[in-house]
């Protein structure tokens, strides 16, 4: 990751230029980011750490197009996304982003396979091709035999693996992970992190992971620390 640059290059997948983010609470204006600049290279596995309220999740939301900067520019793979409409962003997310949430966010009434299928419903794939993609994704996370099970019939680790399968099934360029191991025990967390590491190394997925956990951050290729909306440290692992 590089700070302070506004140049888009072929290497950069994401680029934030002079980004400001302010919230208004009553009469009070709260600044989260003030002229933030950052870029994320293709193929990076970036861990963002920092205390609560430092702006980690807000940054992740802006990268994922679920929150918009107050000012500034957000570029993704050479295209500006901060000016897209809500439905334009939804289409952009469907094509480019896979989300992995702390609490898995699976649909409790759907089977693992149906959960994994959700992003594919936004593509032009037919039923047969969708089935092939679902099987491949579930096989990759080692849960092909649990395809018909509903989330409540699975452990937390298995649910998170289903969530990973859902995130990768449509082959997005980028995975955004919000505390992906925050609800798991150490051993299971390591399994999930190893899986993410494989996705990064073997499948070339660019990954941004927000975490409180220094052990989790060790799986990333780079780690940055945010405090009060500013990067206070950078480095590679």
């Amino acid at each position: 990751m590089t700070e302070g640059t506004t140049n888009t290059t072929d290497e950069n997948l994401f680029q934030l230029t002079n980004v400001n983010k302010r919230f208004t609470k009553g009469r009070e204006s709260i600044t989260i980011f003030d002229d933030l600049n950052m870029s994320i290279k293709k193929g990076e596995f970036l861990a963002i750490m920092g205390p609560s309220g430092s702006g980690k999740t807000t940054l992740l939301n802006m990268l994922g197009g679920v929150d918009q900067p107050t000012n500034g520019e957000v570029w993704f793979d050479g295209a500006r996304i901060d000016k897209l409409s809500e439905n334009g962003l939804a289409k952009w997310r469907a094509a480019n982003i896979g989300f992995i949430f702390q609490f898995y966010n699976l649909m409790p009434m759907l089977s693992a396979a149906r959960n994994v299928e959700l992003p594919l419903l936004l593509t032009n794939l037919g039923k047969k091709r969708r089935k092939q993609s679902i099987d491949a994704a579930l096989e990759l996370v080692g849960l092909k035999d649990r395809a018909g099970h509903k989330p409540k019939e699975m452990s937390g680790g298995q649910q998170q693996r289903v969530a990973v399968a859902r995130a990768i099934v449509s082959d997005p360029k980028m995975l955004l992970c919000d505390e992906p191991t925050g609800d798991l025990d150490r051993a299971t967390a390591d399994e999930i992190l190893t899986m993410l590491q494989e996705l990064n190394r073997e499948y070339g997925k660019t990954i941004v992971m927000v975490t409180h956990d220094p052990e989790a951050a060790k799986y990333a290729t780079k780690t940055v620390h945010l405090d009060k909306g500013e990067f206070v440290e950078k480095g590679s692992v």
Partner: peptide
Amino acid sequence: TLRAIGFSN
């Protein structure tokens, strides 16, 4: 979550 995945409003 569905909206985040890309479902329309």
